[in-house]
């Protein structure tokens, strides 16, 4: 109130410097910016600074003594392993995400048919893979796959099937890594899709049943269109997370056999930390950036479109 009086008192229309400052402070946008400032500071410290620093690192030589410009990137382009990693990351992300989305979708339907009373416990149980720290659960999987004591192979042997080289054969190693990723990630899709399913009014299905739609037609004409947005967002979001995955490969295969399961993150770790070429590792990890940026852009656009439709 004091400021209002001060403005009134000046009378002739010129504002004192002090009250102008307070007016500026009182504007909604100013207050808003001030309030998010701490968060911006944290983001800057935890995201922007490391990102900027790794960009800087990627322009140095191995000993970090000399500026080499784009030499690290050009070097990577000539490495066959690098292109393998690019290919593997894409395959890994696409197959795993499609698998997670599909399994999540089917499981969501299955859970949705369970009467509400029993549903809680099933939902809880199906979430377990998602809430265990991935490094730990992957260790569990490693124990199931691991050649000498493989529990899965033991079961296979019991029913007369030859042992499968889960982690030592290129195909099976890739298969195992993707399988574990699906196992961990599918519950996220399950929960998202279950929520989406529950938000579709029952009346739409009843109307469709009267209109003559069978189960497949209801799925195709009602469920899928009603879930389109949530499917798009979860898939895009999951591609980002999956693409940048580190712990599963690190624990299960360390990128082997012969680098055939490396992803960007694990390869960057191998090159940067294990082989002691931090600038090169930084360059590898920076290659993820454009891919993720495009995906993030798509997500944001999708969210905005969705918000406008409501």
């Amino acid at each position: 109130m004091a400021t209002t009086i001060a403005i009134d008192a000046s009378g002739d229309g010129t504002l004192t410097q002090r009250s102008a400052f307070w007016l500026f402070m009182r504007r909604k946008s100013t207050i808003g910016v001030l309030m998010v400032l701490p968060l911006l500071a944290i983001i800057a410290g935890l995201v922007a600074y490391p990102a900027g620093y790794s960009m800087f690192l990627s322009t140095l030589n191995k000993a970090e003594t000399k500026f080499v410009g784009f030499a690290n990137y050009l070097f990577l382009f000539k490495r066959e392993t690098f292109w393998m990693v690019v290919q593997q990351s894409i395959i890994f992300a696409l197959v795993a995400v499609v698998g997670k989305a599909f399994i999540g979708f089917v499981a969501a339907h299955a859970v949705n048919t369970i009467p509400t009373k029993g549903q809680r416990k099933w939902r809880g149980m199906m979430l377990i893979p998602w809430v265990i720290p991935p490094a730990l659960s992957t260790l569990g999987w490693w124990w199931l796959f691991e050649p000498t004591y493989s529990a899965i192979n033991w079961v296979l042997a019991e029913i007369g099937v030859d042992a499968i080289p889960w982690l030592s054969d290129t195909f099976w190693a890739r298969f195992s890594v993707i399988l574990v990723n699906i196992w961990i990630g599918a519950p996220f899709f399950l929960i998202m899709y279950l929520a989406a399913l529950k938000s579709i009014p029952e009346e739409l299905y009843e109307a469709a049943a009267i209109d003559g739609a069978n189960a497949w037609q209801r799925l195709y004409h009602i469920t899928l269109p009603m879930m389109r947005n949530i499917i798009a967002i979860t898939v895009l979001f999951s591609i980002i997370v999956t693409f940048a995955n580190f712990d599963i490969v690190r624990v299960l295969t360390q990128g082997g056999p012969r680098d055939s399961t490396h992803l960007f993150a694990t390869y960057a770790f191998r090159v940067g930390i294990e082989s002691n070429d931090i600038p090169l590792g930084a360059s590898v990890s920076l290659f993820m950036f454009p891919v993720l940026a495009v995906l993030a852009f798509l997500i944001l656009r999708n969210v905005r479109k969705r918000a406008m439709e409501l």
Binding site: P201, L204, E206, A207, I210, H221, P225, R228
Partner: peptide
């Protein structure tokens, strides 16, 4: 038969 629902149940998409 045809039915008109309380909330209309129009297909939003």
């Amino acid at each position: 038969i045809a039915m008109v629902f309380q909330n209309y149940a129009l297909y939003p998409h």
